[in-house]
Amino acid sequence: MVPYILCMILFLIGVYGIIAKKNLIKIVIGMVIIEYAVNLILILVGYRSGGAAPIITSIEGASREASTFVDPLPQALIVTSIVIGLSVTVLAIVLCLRLYEKYGTLDILHIRRLRG
């Protein structure tokens, strides 16, 4: 249970970063922290205490080995979600650079032309 609670705390730290920070880059870092918290939870879901890495090393013992594996599916999901997170982060950073180019600052208090 403790790892799950720690993940939730990590998640909340990310949310805090998004809500409270005034710097665009720090907001992006908050987003990345949230992503990692979710990824950690996903990998915890598939973990089995004392489980082995899901790699088959010999053909004869395949079925015996398979019974000791941790659940490999969440790991496959995480690779996908990391790739998605990577592309979102790259896009966010590019937007930050562009915003810096236009406004000359990364402070969100000065970047607010849209309201209402």
Binding site: F11, V15, I18, L24, I27, M31, I34, E35, V38, I41, L42, V45, L73, P74, L77, S81, I84, V88, L91, A92, L95, C96, R98, L99, K102, Y103, I111, R112, R113, L114
Partner: peptide, 29 residues
């Protein structure tokens, strides 16, 4: 200026929404 600002806002909120969905999927699994 407006487009970039709107897109950044959309990206942060959309990313947060996606994280919630993935969260839900993890617990569902």
């Amino acid at each position: 200026r407006e487009e970039l600002e709107a897109s950044f806002k959309y990206l942060v909120l959309g990313g947060l929404g996606s994280s919630f969905i993935l969260f839900g999927i993890a617990f569902m699994y």
